[in-house]
Computed example of a mutant assay.
Amino acid sequence: MAGSGGRFLTVASAATLVATEAIATAVAAGWALAGLFHLGDIGEYALMALFTAVALYASWIYLRKATAAEASLPH
């Protein structure tokens, strides 16, 4: 039952979890650093956007590597 459809669901679920946690951490880090350094609203949004972009890139790399790892497993 754990054929290619099950593997795809596993990779998609793990990637969604990792991406959600990475983005939440990025937004929280931007908010915290902007507050710590008194950067104001614009600085806060800029840091959130910057950290979110990094989190999305890291999530994309994770998805690619997880897909490659699952594809290399024997059927």
Rank of each mutant, 00 (worst) to 15 (best):
A46Q: 04
L47E: 06
L9D: 07
S59V: 14
A66D: 09
A19V: 13
L50W: 05
L33M: 02
L36V: 03
L9V: 07
T10E: 09
L50H: 03
A49C: 03
F37R: 08
L56R: 10
A14D: 05
A24L: 07
V54L: 14
V27A: 05
A2T: 15
M48H: 04
L39G: 00
E21I: 05
L47T: 02
G5F: 12
F37K: 04
E21A: 03
M48F: 01
W31R: 07
M1V: 15
L39M: 06
G35K: 06
G43L: 05
E70L: 02
L9M: 06
E44C: 00
A66C: 04
W31D: 07
Y62Q: 09
L56Y: 08
T25G: 00
A71G: 08
A14G: 01
T67C: 04
L36T: 08
P74F: 11
G30Q: 10
S72L: 11
Y57L: 15
L17N: 04
T20K: 07
A34F: 06
A19R: 09
L17P: 00
A69H: 09
A55L: 11
H75W: 13
E70T: 09
A71Q: 14
I23W: 02
T20S: 04
D41S: 00
L47R: 03
M1E: 15
G5P: 02
A22H: 12
T52G: 01
G43R: 04
F8H: 13
L33G: 02
R7T: 11
M48R: 10
T16P: 00
E70V: 06
H38C: 00
H75T: 15
A34Y: 04
S59F: 12
E44D: 01
A71L: 13
P74I: 15
G40Y: 07
I61H: 08
A46I: 08
A2N: 14
Y45V: 06
A32F: 08
M48Y: 02
F8G: 15
G35C: 01
A46W: 05
E21G: 01
A53Y: 09
A55C: 03
V18L: 09
A26M: 08
R64I: 12
G43Q: 05
L33R: 04
S59T: 14
A19P: 01
A58F: 13
T67H: 04
G5Y: 06
A46H: 03
A34H: 07
A28N: 06
L73N: 10
I61E: 14
L73M: 13
A69P: 00
A34M: 05
R64P: 00
G3H: 12
G40L: 05
A53I: 11
K65A: 08
G35I: 07
A32S: 09
A12P: 00
M48I: 12
S13L: 08
H75Q: 14
G43V: 07
G5L: 15
G5R: 15
T10Y: 05
L39Y: 04
V54D: 10
W31Y: 10
L9P: 00
A34R: 03
H38L: 02
G3Q: 14
Y45I: 06
A69Y: 05
T16S: 03
A19S: 11
R64L: 08
A53C: 06
W31V: 09
L56T: 12
L36G: 01
I42H: 03
V18K: 10
G30T: 10
T52F: 05
H38A: 01
A12V: 07
